[in-house]
Design a protein around this nucleic acid. Sequence first.
DNA 1: CTCCTGTCCTGCCGGC
DNA 2: TGCCGGCAGGACAGGA
Length: 278
Amino acid sequence: MPELPEVETVRRSLAPELENRKITRAVVRRRDMRVRAPENFESLVSGAAVRGTTRRGKYILIELSNERMLVVHLGMSGRLKIVPASTDYLEEKHDHLALELSGGAKMIMNDPRRFGSFQLLRRENWTQEKPFAAMGPEPLGADFTGVVLLERLAGRARNIKSALLDQNIVAGVGNIYACEALFKAGIHPARAAGDLNRAEADRLARALREIMEEAIACGGTTLKDHKLPDGERGRYGEKLSVYAKEGELCVNKCGGEIQRFVQSQRASYYCPRCQRER
DNA sequence: CTCCTGTCCTGCCGGC
DNA sequence: TGCCGGCAGGACAGGA
């Protein structure tokens, strides 16, 4: 489910609930997530204060006062909820983690598929640790340009769609926004990544930035699972051009009909008139 | 190195 | 109504 815009909107609405609060108690129901949570998770987290929150790619980073970084990934179906302290810990099916906070609220992670994770890294060198050490640039970063993208795609034989999904090439892009950005840039998803020219890389970098900024402003895309911690849905789904639009007429009024095909076991959607294979 | 395939897990939807 | 196959927004290991 959650790509960069969804993760960022979750982080933003979570931040005021967490920052400067103390984690008075942690309860773990299931540790066997995509990455297994450490056995001493509860004791490492309990008593720590939350200094701040940030995001890298699709990960939410919760900076603790005790030299640890709590790293949360929502996988495909993960949600973070803020509930009153009086709520039962195991209230809903697939509630796996609860953090009791000073101030009378709890943060609960719910994830039916358990593709998500919560883990702890050392704060001082988290950027050198596993998922982050090789991760590509942030598409919303000031230094993310067509030139940078072109450089990272150079020499790649694989198709541009799967390259965009590779977190080590660009961070935070998932299936929806990869399809949408390629459409906006007028690039066919099956093109070889290394064959893009400068103008195409410029358009693609710009499209990624603009789409993600707009999606964040809309609270992300809710197709199914994604909800903000207060239960609200993201509204960017109304603005999608090609994703899950198979058979519909292209929004560019070119007369083309949106096609669906599978690349790397993932559905791709595109307009055959606006995105030429060449 | 690079790239592709299969797999982890549960829920939902459509077809019969 | 019930069962079954297919599909889902992600990431990683393993092998070619």
